[in-house]
């Protein structure tokens, strides 16, 4: 079951160039720093209702900097 899997997101800081797609599409998961680069909020834990947004953020990052980790 997808909802049973635990999900975490994180930003690969070496890849992030501050396009800002993730924190616009999933503001509950990501936030900008003072130069517009992104980082995950808190531990990066994704609530079940936010999973779809996490994928949306990852699939819209031009630099492929949004990393999704799933574990059962």
């Amino acid at each position: 079951m997808q909802s049973a899997a635990r999900m975490k997101v994180r930003i690969d800081a070496d890849r992030c160039e501050g396009h800002g797609r993730c924190y616009v599409l999933a503001p509950e998961l990501f936030e900008p720093d003072e130069i517009g680069n992104s980082h995950e909020r808190g531990s990066g834990e994704v609530e079940p209702q936010c999973k779809e947004r996490a994928f949306l953020a990852a699939r819209n990052c031009p630099e492929h900097a949004v990393i999704i980790e799933e574990s059962t």
């Binding site: 160039e17 501050g18 396009h19 800002g20 517009g36 949306l56 699939r59 819209n60 990052c61 031009p62 630099e63």
Partner: peptide, 20 residues
């Protein structure tokens, strides 16, 4: 279009600084 990994503002270290 929901998935749109476009490059209008470039890629890499020279990403358009004025994109926001």
């Amino acid at each position: 279009r929901e998935v749109n990994r476009h490059t209008a503002f470039g890629l890499g270290i020279h990403r358009c600084a004025g994109s926001h």
